[in-house]
């Protein structure tokens, strides 16, 4: 199942069955709370890893839109926030179960995304970027102003929702709910990874690639541009919505300042530095953008004492990666493999 490095062939993945690799990865992530409990890692790292997980979910959908289909959206944060607030309200104010809130929030937010996708057919490139940005800004302003629903600028704190339709939250079950929510996060990430994998390697993925590579060829080959654009936007907003719902229920809080352009740009950056059109690359990119400062650099005393320099370092790192690895850091794997082959040849 796991090929030995010595018999490695060009183009073959290291773990033969992709599904197996996703499952193993999911298992690894699922063990994090245990590691935290045992003191192998800091307990706060579980929260940071959780943030890598939900941002990766949004980034995977964005990669489908930007990486595979070549359409720019700067509105990701807006859709995340919208779904977060809707789900928060449905569980906390309307006392409905988590699953209902999740489906409602994702459906509403995705419909908005599909609407934006429909409008996108008329606009290209930079204008599309600005249009999506405008949508996100309108949403953010709504979060600030519509405060019977959102709590306004000071944000909306909530409690844990009822899980599986019967498990009501009480303070005694705090640890259980914390862990359950984390495992739900991991499950959704692996599910989205598998979904993206399945869709992108088949007819849908080829159609999206064609849309990106040559609209003329795509149309000549019978690909309905509108249909696939709508799909791409819909998928990206669905994953962003899912990520927003998971965010607000894991952190039990959200505020309007979380859903700014900066977040949308960070997710675009994450995809680019991690690897466009690459699933593990997306997660790697999100890790670099989101977790480096608090997990990796914080270990180094200089950066722990000078967090502004840590921020700068993170930014410079991103620039360097784009300069020298424009196809994403994940391709480092390919280069290492070439190195292995070279070394093998020498002996």
């Amino acid at each position: 199942m796991i090929k030995k490095l010595s018999s490695y062939k060009k183009g073959q993945p290291l773990i033969k069955n992709a599904y197996m690799s996703y499952a193993l990865f999911g298992l690894f992530l699922a063990l994090m709370p245990l590691f935290g409990y045992l003191g192998i890692i800091k307990s706060s790292y579980v929260t940071i890893i959780a943030s890598v997980i939900y941002y990766s979910i949004a980034a995977l959908g964005l990669n489908v839109l930007l990486g595979w289909t070549g359409l720019i959206s700067l509105g990701t944060a807006g859709f995340m926030g919208l779904a977060a607030y809707i789900s928060a309200y449905i569980t906390y104010n309307m006392h409905l179960p988590f699953e209902i809130a999740l489906v409602t929030a994702v459906v509403v937010s995705t419909l908005l995304g599909v609407l934006v996708g429909y409008i996108s057919l008329r606009i290209e490139g930079i204008y599309l970027a600005i249009a999506t940005l405008a949508v996100a800004e309108i949403l953010r302003k709504t979060f600030e102003v519509f405060d019977p629903f959102t709590g306004g600028a000071s944000g909306k704190p909530i409690s844990y929702p009822t899980l599986f339709f019967f498990y009501k939250y009480s303070r005694a079950d705090l640890k259980i709910f914390e862990t359950l929510l984390y495992l739900i996060l991991v499950l959704f990430l692996i599910a989205v990874m598998i979904l993206v994998h399945n869709l992108m390697k088949g007819q849908v993925g080829r159609a999206l690639n064609a849309l990106r590579g040559s609209e003329a060829a795509a149309q000549a080959m019978g690909i309905n541009l509108l249909k696939y654009r709508l799909f791409a936007f819909g998928f990206a907003s669905a994953t962003a919505s899912l990520a927003g719902v998971l965010y607000v229920h894991y952190n039990r809080y959200t505020n309007p300042d979380r859903w700014l352009l900066a977040l949308s740009l960070n997710l675009v950056a994450a995809i680019i530095i991690g690897g466009v059109r690459n699933i593990y690359g997306t997660i790697l990119g999100v890790f670099i953008v989101v977790a480096t400062k608090d997990m990796v650099l914080a270990q180094i005393p200089y950066f722990a004492n000078n967090p502004n320099f840590a921020l700068m370092f993170n930014g410079i790192l991103i620039i360097l990666i784009i300069l020298y690895y424009p196809y994403g850091l994940i391709r480092i794997g390919a280069d290492l493999k070439k190195l292995v082959v070279k070394i093998k040849e020498k002996f």
């Binding site: 080829r206 040559s214 060829a217 019978g222 690909i223």
Partner: peptide
């Protein structure tokens, strides 16, 4: 007009796009 980042086989398969009947869900 070919898609550079895809394999030759995938490019040819794009020509068969309309033959595929499986829905989004199925895929």
């Amino acid at each position: 007009e070919l898609i550079k980042e895809l394999s030759i086989l995938d490019n040819v398969l794009i020509g068969g796009h309309i033959d595929f009947k499986t829905s989004f869900i199925g895929q």
